[in-house]
Simulated scan of single mutants.
Amino acid sequence: MDSPYRRELQVAITAAQTAAHISRQVLSAFRRPGGDGDGDGDGDAATTSAGPLDLVKDDLSPVTVADFAIQAFLVRTLGGAFPSDGFVGEESSSELRTNPGLTSRVLAVLAQCAGAGAGGETPFRDAQDIYDTIDRCVAPQKHSDTNNRTWVFDPIDGTKTFLRGEQYAINIALLEGGRQVLSVVACPLLSPDATAPVNDGHVDPTGRGCILYAVRGHGAFVRPLPGSHDEVQARRLPRHADSVLSPADLHAVTCWARLDSGVDMVHKAVAEQLKVPFPGSDLLGWVLRWVVLAMGAANMTVWVYKRRDRFAKIWDHAGAMLLFEEVGGKITDVHGKDIDLTAGRTLKTNFGFVAAPQSLHHLVLDALHNELKAQGKHELLR
């Protein structure tokens, strides 16, 4: 791809490949017998070398060695290449600082996977170096400044499915002035040739996995995960959403089997009103849902949170949304407002999501409003 972001793209793709390697190594250790995964042993991750599951975050999702190791690695790598840029990531070091055993495992996996020297030393000096690097992602960022460049990371999107050896993603986005300009998403278990329906348990039988990437105005692409950026042939994704002119051609992606934060029956009712097969592709992680929309395995999703005080996190959507926009998709919130990525870590100026082909977005939005009113959920439209 020829674009003004060629260097950023090369660095981010190479970083995503190493991040995927880290995730696979941690997952392999977790799933070994005795690793507190699905193996035969009865080991405890708190005492098993490189076991990923050690803590529970405030939102009750598991925190893993891979989350911390990948975020530290991405900040160190992209910060080294682009030292003036800012960073936003899901993790902070507060959990690590209270758990020396977890910190040791993060250091160990980085030494193993992320450029250790010949003597096996870690690429990070010590625990404090890890903490400081991770916490570059929690410093206040002015995303709306015109000249501000901010990298946004989700080191493991879909932690619960990751721990089961199912679909997960590593999300890397570059924002300029709060505007998505670059996306790189690594999907270590997703086939680059995946077709609908795509569910969490559908793992690439070849073991390759894939990377999707996009630069604003230059299209979206998919390629196998292994191989250098210059050597591997990428496939440009067609602007399939531009050709969808009838509701009969809509295909959904949602989170149905493990739904906890959304208004489940509204999502189903919208699909029924539009005569769209439901649930279609069914995925826990938001980044994977944007990926499936970009790949053409779906072209529509709606999401309404159960409460007005529940908002999306920037790392679940920034960059990954650009993939769908680059194939002709339109994305707004439940009120039809554009998604505001300048609001900070939480997208508090938006509520929920409606994504569809440009020509049909208004029909999907109208169907959603009709269903919310019909089910007496007027408070969610305020």
Score class of each variant (00 low, 15 high):
residue 50 A to N: 07
residue 24 R to V: 12
residue 220 A to S: 09
residue 148 N to D: 10
residue 323 L to E: 02
residue 297 A to Q: 13
residue 90 E to F: 00
residue 168 Y to G: 08
residue 280 G to E: 13
residue 200 D to N: 15
residue 72 A to I: 02
residue 153 F to N: 04
residue 23 S to I: 02
residue 52 P to N: 09
residue 175 L to K: 07
residue 356 A to Q: 14
residue 329 G to F: 11
residue 208 R to M: 13
residue 354 V to S: 14
residue 292 V to F: 10
residue 180 Q to A: 10
residue 328 G to V: 09
residue 186 A to Y: 06
residue 142 K to Q: 14
residue 308 R to E: 09
residue 158 G to T: 10
residue 190 L to F: 03
residue 35 G to L: 05
residue 95 E to Y: 09
residue 338 D to K: 15
residue 293 L to G: 08
residue 303 W to F: 15
residue 208 R to G: 12
residue 39 G to A: 03
residue 191 S to T: 09
residue 273 Q to Y: 05
residue 21 H to T: 14
residue 350 N to D: 08
residue 136 R to L: 13
residue 171 N to V: 04
residue 353 F to M: 11
residue 88 V to H: 02
residue 257 A to N: 11
residue 105 R to W: 01
residue 198 V to M: 08
residue 243 S to Y: 12
residue 82 F to C: 08
residue 127 A to T: 09
residue 113 C to A: 14
residue 221 F to A: 02
residue 205 P to V: 12
residue 101 G to E: 10
residue 273 Q to G: 02
residue 350 N to M: 10
residue 375 Q to V: 06
residue 265 M to A: 05
residue 367 A to T: 07
residue 227 G to S: 03
residue 337 K to G: 14
residue 39 G to P: 02
residue 237 L to F: 10
residue 82 F to G: 04
residue 219 G to V: 06
residue 302 V to Q: 15
residue 171 N to T: 01
residue 27 L to I: 02
residue 267 H to R: 13
residue 125 R to K: 15
residue 116 A to P: 00
residue 85 D to N: 09
residue 109 V to D: 00
residue 54 D to L: 06
residue 373 K to F: 11
residue 189 L to I: 06
residue 178 G to L: 12
residue 147 N to A: 15
residue 312 A to E: 15
residue 228 S to L: 02
residue 214 A to E: 01
residue 42 D to C: 08
residue 138 V to N: 09
residue 117 G to M: 05
residue 170 I to R: 02
residue 223 R to Y: 03
residue 250 L to D: 15
residue 102 L to D: 06
residue 142 K to H: 13
residue 92 S to Y: 00
residue 66 A to V: 03
residue 175 L to E: 06
residue 252 A to G: 13
residue 353 F to Y: 15
residue 37 G to C: 07
residue 62 P to L: 09
residue 243 S to D: 15
residue 375 Q to A: 11
residue 268 K to C: 07
residue 257 A to P: 01
residue 116 A to K: 00
residue 258 R to H: 14
residue 199 N to L: 13
residue 146 T to R: 15
residue 114 A to Q: 06
residue 73 F to W: 05
residue 8 E to D: 03
residue 23 S to C: 12
residue 247 P to K: 08
residue 57 K to N: 13
residue 200 D to S: 10
residue 382 R to W: 13
residue 365 L to Y: 05
residue 289 R to A: 10
residue 101 G to H: 08
residue 62 P to V: 10
residue 305 Y to N: 15
residue 187 C to V: 08
residue 151 W to K: 07
residue 283 L to Y: 10
residue 62 P to H: 12
residue 26 V to F: 05
residue 33 P to K: 02
residue 81 A to Q: 09
residue 76 R to F: 00
residue 325 E to P: 00
residue 49 S to E: 07
residue 42 D to P: 00
residue 209 G to A: 07
residue 330 K to I: 04
residue 67 D to S: 00
residue 296 G to C: 03
residue 95 E to Q: 12
residue 71 Q to H: 00
residue 266 V to S: 04
residue 280 G to P: 11
residue 3 S to T: 12
residue 270 V to M: 10
residue 179 R to C: 08
residue 86 G to H: 11
residue 275 K to A: 12
